[in-house]
């Protein structure tokens, strides 16, 4: 198999349903499974494997509890709670932190991105700062944040927000840089001021890119959540998982992981919906 063929096979697996057909297949028109169906089968297979290994006693419940235990735990925690808070309270605490961080990171990240994309000076100032912050894992700067800001709620939000600023700023900058030259020329030749050009041409142009940045940032935010809730939290999904791990309550750990995944997925869908409403023209123009 040549490299190209291998690449092709890999791409076919990864391709979403409505993807551009880069290599149309000339095969006979035999009925093919859509990638969505294949995804559903994959998930079912994973669930089945999970059920089997636990049922057959191949893995002790301490390491991997059976799915029905996790589900049962979900209901218990949802109704009675775990460590002084119900699942909804844990969830709301985490969601509140992630969303507060998103708002803060957006308010900071978009102007920074605008400065990087639109001005030489802005790029000179902020590029090294972002490049410095971006690769640092949240757990590494967490201690410093605690020393500086203590263990309150704002420190937790700050840890998450720091992880979110770079993706938002960089996506904004790339959106700003990719504004069609003709559109800028058109606005300028109509006599628009610099301010008007930025507000009515540059920002709307960059909006699809900014929204992509928000999506990436939300992902980064959830990733950072557990680290942020390491410190002096009394509520939150990350806190719940860690406490459960300390008492070896593995079913709560697994349940917590699944809940985080589900919430992140719902938020992703929500942002995609916002994208369709806000920038229906993206990709069609």
């Amino acid at each position: 198999m040549t490299l190209l063929q291998a690449e092709r096979g890999r791409r076919d697996l990864a391709e979403p349903e409505r993807a551009t057909v880069l290599w149309p297949r000339s095969d006979t028109p035999r009925r093919e499974l859509s990638s969505r169906t294949i995804s559903a089968i994959t998930i079912l297979a994973a669930l089945l494997a999970w059920t089997l290994v636990t049922r057959l006693g191949l893995v002790a419940p301490l390491f991997l509890p059976p799915p029905q235990d996790v589900l049962a735990k979900f209901w218990t925690v949802a109704s009675q709670g775990f460590i002084d808070a119900t699942l909804a309270q844990h969830l709301l605490a985490s969601l509140g932190r992630v969303l507060a961080a998103l708002v803060a990171a957006t308010l900071v990240g978009i102007p920074i991105g605008l400065a990087i994309g639109a001005s030489r000076v802005g790029r000179g100032i902020f590029d090294p700062v972002l490049e410095f912050l971006r690769p640092i894992p949240p757990l590494a700067y967490l201690p410093l944040i605690i020393i500086w800001f203590g263990i309150g709620e704002s420190a937790k939000v700050l840890v998450i927000a720091i992880a979110m600023v770079a993706p938002i700023a960089l996506s904004t900058a790339s959106g700003v840089r990719n504004v069609q030259q003709d559109r800028l020329s058109a606005a300028r030749s109509l006599g628009a001021t610099r301010r008007q050009v930025i507000r009515f041409v540059v920002l709307p142009s960059a909006l699809p890119s900014i929204l992509t940045g928000l999506r990436i940032a939300l992902g980064a935010g959830w990733t950072t959540l557990v680290a942020a809730e390491l410190v002096a939290a009394t509520r939150g999904l990350g806190f719940m998982i860690q406490s459960a791990a300390q008492f070896l309550v593995t079913d709560v750990v697994v349940m917590g992981i699944l809940v985080i995944a589900a919430v992140a997925f719902v938020l992703e869908l929500g942002l995609r919906f916002v994208e369709r409403r806000l920038v229906p023209w993206a990709g069609r123009d």
Partner: peptide, 19 residues
């Protein structure tokens, strides 16, 4: 002095604002 509204431009790419 640079572009101005006294000389309006129509572009081949139309350069409309899709938003």
């Amino acid at each position: 002095e640079g572009p101005g509204a006294d000389r309006a431009v129509v572009f081949q790419s139309d350069a409309l604002f899709p938003w």
